[in-house]
């Protein structure tokens, strides 16, 4: 029964994530596409929860659904296009080929990999462990990432400043 619940949740969330992702490509209205993207993000967050990674799940919602999507909304709103439509362009065919290749590759990897099944984790304080991991073994990448972000921020300010 316990496992059944998780399995049902997994399939439901997977369907939601993939369905939303598919709709994101299919809808013509850019705003709708972004909303489907958010739905997809939320589905991924749900998948993290089934993996007992509560911190990552919440961070996913906070950062992706809450912040990244807002950036995308800004991008769409600032696009000087009178109708916010996902109109066709000359890149359609290359994009189709590329995505076909990606799908093939991912399917191949998924089918061919020897998947190891992890034991069910529990809702322990994952946040503390992540924090310790970030600040002791991975402190260098962590700091480099923050330097990169500061650089990006300064770059953004320089770009936005007039004259």
């Amino acid at each position: 029964m316990d496992d059944l619940g998780v399995v049902i949740a997994f399939w439901a969330l997977a369907a939601m994530t993939i369905g939303a992702a598919a709709m994101l490509i299919l809808v013509r209205n850019l705003m709708h596409a972004i909303l489907f993207l958010i739905l997809s993000f939320v589905g991924v967050a749900g998948l993290y929860i089934t993996l007992s990674a509560d911190f990552v799940a919440v961070a996913q919602v906070l950062i992706y659904a809450g912040a990244i999507s807002v950036l995308m909304i800004f991008a769409v709103m600032l696009t000087p296009l009178s109708e916010r439509d996902n109109s066709g362009n000359f890149l359609q065919l290359p994009a189709l080929v590329l995505s076909g290749l990606v799908i093939a590759g991912v399917t191949f990897v998924a089918l061919e990999t020897e998947w190891r099944e992890a034991g069910r984790g529990s809702f322990d304080t994952t946040a503390a462990e992540i924090g310790e991991a970030l600040l002791s073994p991975f402190v260098l990448p962590f700091e480099i990432a923050s330097v990169l972000l500061v650089a990006a921020m300064i770059g953004a300010i320089v770009i936005v400043r007039d004259d």
């Binding site: 909303l35 807002v70 322990d124």
Partner: peptide, 22 residues
């Protein structure tokens, strides 16, 4: 009783933004 309850609340408040924009 989420271990990340505070973060959860913050995540919720950030999604409200999107809905208001919607």
């Amino acid at each position: 009783d989420l271990n990340v309850g505070v973060l959860f609340l913050l995540a919720l408040s950030s999604t409200t933004t999107i809905i208001i924009f919607m």
